[in-house]
């Protein structure tokens, strides 16, 4: 191996702790994510948001399914659970119900949450379960090499759609709202401040909260669609985004060349699954 130049050696020594080392499992670094991947910036926002909320670290649990995004659970230095593909939400449901002191976050990919886990997603939204769901949408199955998925835009190429993907993608904010979620936002991974603020806002709330992050996957998605590097793609998503709080989610479809509508689509309150348990059922049993 080549010896690094003397000034670089000093630089390495001086930077021996990562500024977020307390919330990352540094003994698991380096991580597996590609350079140019947007997952890291999203995770940075999450850690910053968590710190700003002041919620004790011991009282936050993160549950992931399987995929590149699913690896988030393994890098966060919190109680963290890496479950099976698509099943983060039901696992988190049991965890959150058994331990009401916990803030439970499900952090996973688009394929995980709205393809194989789609049924769990809509039913958990319907119940208004106390879960915050971060859905990283890179329009593909990153981990398995770029197959088409439930969010792949019409005409985009994928390893299983060599002629382009020709089935309609889900519009995640619309799906979440139609199913009963109470907080729904979308940002790109370059909207770091706004994404962080959104996460900070959603973390302490009750009910089913969904934050979609539009995230570049240079390796699996961009390459097949000749969209350039991770940075190019990040800029592309950012520059083509329009921020419109309270936008009609029906207008939030994403196609290959159109705009990406970002912002907070919904922020309301309605009784949660737990509220019904503690109030309605307890009342009938003669409790409070």
């Amino acid at each position: 191996m080549n010896k690094p130049a003397a000034h670089l050696e000093t630089a390495i020594v001086e930077q021996d702790t990562h500024p977020m080392a307390d919330l990352l499992r540094m003994d698991r670094m380096p991580h597996i994510w590609c350079s140019g991947c947007g997952l890291g910036t999203g995770l940075t926002c999450f850690i910053m948001a968590l710190k700003e909320t002041g919620i004790p670290e011991d009282k936050v649990a993160v549950v992931s399914g399987i995929g590149c995004t699913g690896r988030v659970a393994g890098y966060l230095n919190l109680d963290s659970f890496h479950t099976t593909h698509g099943r983060g939400i039901p696992f988190a449901t049991g965890l959150a119900l058994a331990n009401p002191d916990l803030r439970v976050v499900v952090y996973s990919g688009d394929g995980d949450l709205v393809a194989i886990g789609g049924n769990h997603f809509i039913h958990s939204a319907r119940r208004n379960m106390d879960l915050m769901v971060v859905c990283v949408n890179n329009f593909t199955y990153g981990m398995t090499g770029g197959q088409a998925g439930p969010t792949t835009p019409i005409s985009a190429k994928a390893s299983t759609a060599p002629y382009g993907s020709y089935d309609y993608p889900f519009n995640i904010p619309y799906l979440a709202i139609a199913s009963g979620a109470t907080y729904v936002a979308r940002w790109t991974s370059l909207h770091m401040r706004r994404l962080k603020n959104s996460m900070r806002e959603a973390l302490p709330k009750k009910g089913f909260r969904v934050i979609e992050i539009i995230c570049p996957c240079p390796t699996a998605f961009a390459r097949k669609n000749r969209l350039g590097s991770g940075l190019d793609l990040m800029k592309h998503y950012h520059d083509n985004s329009i921020i419109k709080h309270g936008a009609d989610p029906r207008e939030a479809d994403i196609d290959m060349n159109g705009k990406v509508v970002c912002g907070t689509f919904l922020d309301i309150e309605r009784p949660t699954f737990r509220d019904f348990q503690t109030e309605n059922i307890a009342k009938q049993l003669g409790g409070e």
Binding site: T83, I89, P90, F91, T93
Partner: peptide, 28 residues
């Protein structure tokens, strides 16, 4: 509910099985 526990009818058996694993790690 009589003892303060929770019954939840999940959407399918994959969810059921996962929910009981999550509940166990939550301490129940």
């Amino acid at each position: 509910p009589e003892v303060g526990g929770i019954f939840i009818q999940m959407e399918d058996e994959m969810a059921s099985m996962n929910s009981i694993l999550g509940a166990a790690w939550g301490g129940w």
